[in-house]
Structures are given as structure tokens and as C-alpha cells.
Deep mutational scan, measured.
Amino acid sequence: QRITLKDYAMRFGQTKTAKDLGVYQSAINKAIHAGRKIFLTINADGSVYAEEVKDGEVKPFPS
């Protein structure tokens, strides 16, 4: 399943989102408010992988 960072954070909370991605909650808040195009893939085992689309390139998040 693929979902935006904002939607994932709204569904699970910023604290869990940060923990799942290995970053601080403040980084999640800042990324959402900056309007960054970050998409999360939720794997069947429950693990989460995030990618950011920037300038036409897709890069892992966090980099």
C-alpha cells in the first residue's frame, strides 16, 4: 500500500511515523508543513519504506 507522509501521520500519529522511519518527530512535522512530496510504502510485514519525489527524481527518505 502506498500513502502520503501526511496521510500516514494523520492515521498513525507523528510519533509513530517518526519511529517507523527512524527520524525525530520534529522532522516529520517540518516535512509535512513544508509540503514535501514524500510517499510511504507499507509492506505486507508491516515495515515501512519512504521515498521523496523532488525535481523529478525519486530518493529514499530520510536520505
Rank of each mutant, 00 (worst) to 15 (best):
residue 30 K to F: 08
residue 7 D to G: 04
residue 52 E to P: 01
residue 24 Y to K: 15
residue 16 K to V: 05
residue 24 Y to C: 15
residue 17 T to M: 03
residue 44 A to P: 14
residue 4 T to I: 05
residue 7 D to C: 09
residue 18 A to C: 04
residue 42 I to Q: 06
residue 53 V to F: 14
residue 45 D to M: 05
residue 28 I to P: 00
residue 51 E to V: 11
residue 17 T to K: 00
residue 22 G to P: 01
residue 4 T to P: 14
residue 58 V to N: 08
residue 27 A to S: 11
residue 8 Y to L: 01
residue 34 A to W: 06
residue 38 I to F: 01
residue 18 A to N: 01
residue 22 G to N: 10
residue 25 Q to G: 10
residue 38 I to S: 00
residue 39 F to Q: 04
residue 21 L to N: 01
residue 34 A to Q: 13
residue 6 K to E: 15
residue 29 N to Y: 12
residue 39 F to V: 07
residue 36 R to C: 07
residue 55 D to F: 08
residue 49 Y to N: 09
residue 15 T to N: 12
residue 29 N to P: 07
residue 17 T to W: 01
residue 17 T to I: 05
residue 12 F to R: 04
residue 6 K to Y: 12
residue 44 A to N: 12
residue 54 K to P: 02
residue 17 T to E: 01
residue 53 V to D: 12
residue 13 G to T: 03
residue 58 V to W: 14
residue 56 G to K: 08
residue 33 H to Q: 14
residue 29 N to C: 13
residue 35 G to I: 03
residue 41 T to C: 09
residue 12 F to T: 03
residue 23 V to R: 02
residue 2 R to Y: 10
residue 37 K to D: 09
residue 39 F to N: 04
residue 4 T to A: 14
residue 57 E to N: 11
residue 60 P to K: 09
residue 52 E to C: 04
residue 27 A to Y: 13
residue 12 F to I: 04
residue 3 I to A: 06
residue 43 N to H: 10
residue 44 A to D: 13
residue 16 K to L: 03
residue 14 Q to R: 10
residue 27 A to K: 07
residue 59 K to H: 14
residue 34 A to D: 15
residue 44 A to H: 09
residue 51 E to K: 05
residue 10 M to P: 01
residue 23 V to H: 04
residue 27 A to G: 06
residue 45 D to L: 05
residue 8 Y to T: 00
residue 33 H to C: 12
residue 63 S to L: 11
residue 24 Y to F: 13
residue 24 Y to S: 15
residue 34 A to L: 09
residue 52 E to D: 03
residue 23 V to G: 03
residue 46 G to K: 05
residue 11 R to Y: 10
residue 21 L to R: 00
residue 11 R to F: 10
residue 45 D to A: 06
residue 19 K to N: 12
residue 47 S to D: 07
residue 20 D to V: 11
residue 39 F to T: 07
residue 16 K to R: 09
residue 18 A to Y: 02
residue 7 D to I: 04
residue 13 G to I: 01
residue 20 D to C: 05
residue 4 T to M: 07
residue 43 N to Q: 13
residue 9 A to R: 06
residue 60 P to Q: 08
residue 2 R to K: 14
residue 13 G to N: 02
residue 47 S to A: 08
residue 38 I to K: 00
residue 38 I to M: 01
residue 40 L to A: 03
residue 15 T to D: 15
residue 22 G to Y: 04
residue 37 K to V: 11
residue 38 I to H: 00
residue 11 R to H: 09
residue 43 N to Y: 12
residue 9 A to K: 06
residue 62 P to Q: 04
residue 7 D to H: 05
residue 38 I to D: 00
residue 41 T to Q: 08
residue 25 Q to E: 15
residue 23 V to N: 02
residue 57 E to D: 11
residue 27 A to D: 15
residue 24 Y to H: 15
residue 12 F to M: 07
residue 29 N to F: 11
residue 59 K to A: 10
residue 3 I to E: 06
residue 58 V to C: 08
residue 55 D to T: 06
